[in-house]
């Protein structure tokens, strides 16, 4: 039985605008997504900001009610049996909020241990163990207001694990921490997954999803646009070539012409510093460099390069395609 089963999940927000004339606008944050996560899996929801990742995770941990669709976590219905779900899952989000600043790290952990019903005689041992694991031993009696971002994030992780949750939800855990801290965080998450904890992680960093997750669902515009193992996702673009052309001027005007060329499977414009870069992907064995340059005649060009496709290309293409629709 899958640990998480999500079927045709939807969530609509009513955004109110204006004070005098109350007009209510409906925003569809999540538009019918379905996926399953197996026990012990490290599953990633990858997507840009505003794609619906956080809304999805909040429905899974019972903080938001779905507009329609069903969610089962560990066999319990997240809508009608929230208490059952809450006591079995852990939730950690990124950023430096979500802690009692004026209390010590230890007090924060003791309070949540009590909230999650960790038996009194086990609390101190469990907290000690977790402090050791996240590398906060010796600092636990200091007030949180003096903690660095990395320390706060590690305290968050410890808090989320107090009750030995069967499933851990991590919402953008590495946001705002430095690269070293982010790597330590990934090591911690990987270690957790290896001990059998199911982990669902959201991120907008591709390499994070790539290096950590067993499976990834790419989410954009409230829908899952692709899903599979990192290798499978890369495979979708592996057979082909990518041509990058630096353009000093406006490349947008030529996009349609480039897309119409035979052999071109996609074309995108990225802003990189002062220049725009036209990224053109073509089918296997077809070199589209010359016709692409033909479409750009009259515009000052910089470096032209040809390379192998990466996971990032797959991601940009999936997410970019969604933006167009």
């Amino acid at each position: 039985m899958p640990v998480i089963e999500v079927a045709d999940l939807r969530r609509t927000y009513h955004a109110k605008t204006g004070i005098r004339r109350r007009s209510s606008r409906e925003v569809e944050a999540v538009r019918g997504i379905s996926f399953e996560v197996e026990r012990g899996e490290l599953f990633g929801l990858l997507g840009p900001n505003g794609a619906g990742k956080t809304t999805t995770i909040k429905m899974l941990i019972t903080l938001l009610l779905p507009t329609s669709g069903s969610i089962r976590v560990l066999g319990f219905d997240a809508v009608t049996e929230p208490r059952e779900v809450r006591s079995r899952v852990g939730y950690v989000f990124g950023g430096d909020r979500g802690l009692y600043e004026r209390l010590s790290g230890l007090d924060n952990l003791r309070y949540f241990a009590q909230l999650y019903g960790v038996p009194a005689h086990e609390q101190m041992a469990r907290i000690g163990e977790l402090l050791e694991m996240v590398g906060l031993s010796g600092r636990e009696r200091e007030r949180v207001e003096g903690y660095s971002r990395g320390m706060r994030q590690r305290l968050h992780i410890a808090r989320g694990l107090l009750h030995r949750p069967e499933v851990l939800f991590l919402d953008e855990p590495s946001i705002g921490i430095d690269p070293v801290g982010a790597r330590e965080l990934r090591d911690t998450v990987a270690a957790l997954a290896s001990t059998g904890t199911t982990v669902l992680l959201t991120t907008h960093y591709m390499f994070e999803a790539d290096s950590l997750c067993d499976r990834i669902a790419v989410i954009a515009g409230g829908q899952i646009v692709a899903h599979g193992t990192p290798a499978e996702l890369k495979g979708r673009v592996a057979d082909g070539n990518v041509v990058e052309v630096e353009v000093f001027g406006s490349a947008e005007g030529s996009l349609d012409a480039v897309r119409a060329l035979t052999g071109v499977s996609s074309a995108l414009v990225e802003e990189r510093g002062q220049a725009q870069v036209l990224v053109v992907r073509s089918g296997p064995g077809i070199d589209v460099t010359a016709p692409v340059l033909g479409c750009l005649s009259g515009i000052p060009l910089g470096r032209v390069a040809m390379r192998e496709p990466t996971l990032e290309d797959a991601y940009v293409e999936l997410v970019g395609a969604q933006d167009v629709t």
């Binding site: 903080l63 939730y91 909020r97 979500g98 802690l99 600043e101 999650y116």
Partner: peptide, 18 residues
Amino acid sequence: RQGTLELLVAAPAPFPLL
């Protein structure tokens, strides 16, 4: 404001007792 309200609601303990 400090982001802990969600954590309190997400905990299994009955909210009024918090």
